[in-house]
Every structure is written in structure tokens, then in C-alpha cells.
Simulated scan of single mutants.
Amino acid sequence: MDLTLRRLEALAHPARMAIVRLLAELPDEHTAYDPRCGTAYGVCFCHLKEKTGLSGPTVSHHLKLLREAGLVEGVRVGRWTYFRLRPGALEALGHELLNLAHQAAKVSAKAV
């Protein structure tokens, strides 16, 4: 399946979109940082579960689909996994949609 299609399908579900929004915020009190450089590892699973109100297995399922679409990555720190967005993947999807919009605008302008 086309990567763009997988990404759009992943974002089309309300729960997955809620998770993406939570990860975009990276709330300080629930974000783990690398003590050496200050880079954010991401948000803990328990925060996503609490904020979405979904069960653990359901959150895991949605994270799996977001990871498979390349939108989210998990960073393992000790025995914990923290989740964060892959901004480049979202930007690539945005650019593709923007290119389509520009193409459509050109076609519309010629038709007038």
C-alpha cells in the first residue's frame, strides 16, 4: 500500500488523531528527556492511556498503526518506552497534500 495512503488512513481515526495531538504537545510533566543533551524521548504510554481514556490494548493497537505508517516512533529507555512524533513524516504528508492543492488550483485557473 502507498505510504501516503497508510498515513492518511492512520490519521483518519479520531483516537489516533487524538494521540498525534497529544504527542505534538509533549507536555513537560509527562515527557522524558535525555539528561545528556535535553532531547525529548517522548511521552510515556500511561499518559496517552490516561488522556485518551482508552484501554491499554486499544492505545497499543493505535500506536502500532501509527508506527507502521511511520508517523510515530518509540524510544526505549531502560524498561520504559516513550512515544514521539516523526515530524519529517508529517511534513512529507503535508507537502504532498499541498502539491495536490497547487495542482488543482492551476487546473481551476485554466478552466476559468
Rank of each mutant, 00 (worst) to 15 (best):
L8E: 13
A10Q: 04
A12E: 13
H13Y: 10
H13I: 07
P14Y: 10
P14H: 08
M17E: 15
M17L: 14
I19A: 04
I19P: 01
V20E: 01
R21G: 09
R21V: 11
L22I: 14
L23H: 05
A24N: 14
A24S: 12
A24R: 10
L26D: 14
P27E: 10
P27Y: 04
E29Q: 13
H30E: 14
A32D: 11
A32M: 13
Y33S: 05
P35M: 12
P35H: 06
R36Q: 14
C37E: 11
C37M: 06
C37N: 13
G38P: 06
G38W: 09
T39D: 12
T39G: 08
A40L: 13
Y41V: 03
G42Q: 01
G42M: 01
V43K: 03
C44Y: 14
C44D: 15
F45P: 00
C46S: 15
H47A: 11
H47C: 08
H47I: 04
H47N: 11
L48V: 06
L48D: 01
L48F: 04
L48R: 00
K49Y: 09
K51N: 13
K51S: 14
T52V: 11
G53E: 07
L54I: 02
S55N: 07
S55Q: 11
S55P: 03
G56V: 14
P57H: 12
S60Y: 03
H61C: 04
L63K: 00
L63P: 05
L63G: 02
K64T: 05
L65A: 03
L66T: 01
L66N: 00
R67P: 01
R67N: 10
E68K: 15
E73Q: 10
E73M: 07
G74R: 02
R76K: 12
R76N: 00
V77D: 09
G78P: 04
R79Y: 10
T81Y: 00
Y82A: 02
R84W: 01
R86Q: 10
R86H: 06
G88V: 03
A89G: 07
L90W: 06
L93W: 05
G94Y: 14
H95K: 09
H95I: 11
L98W: 15
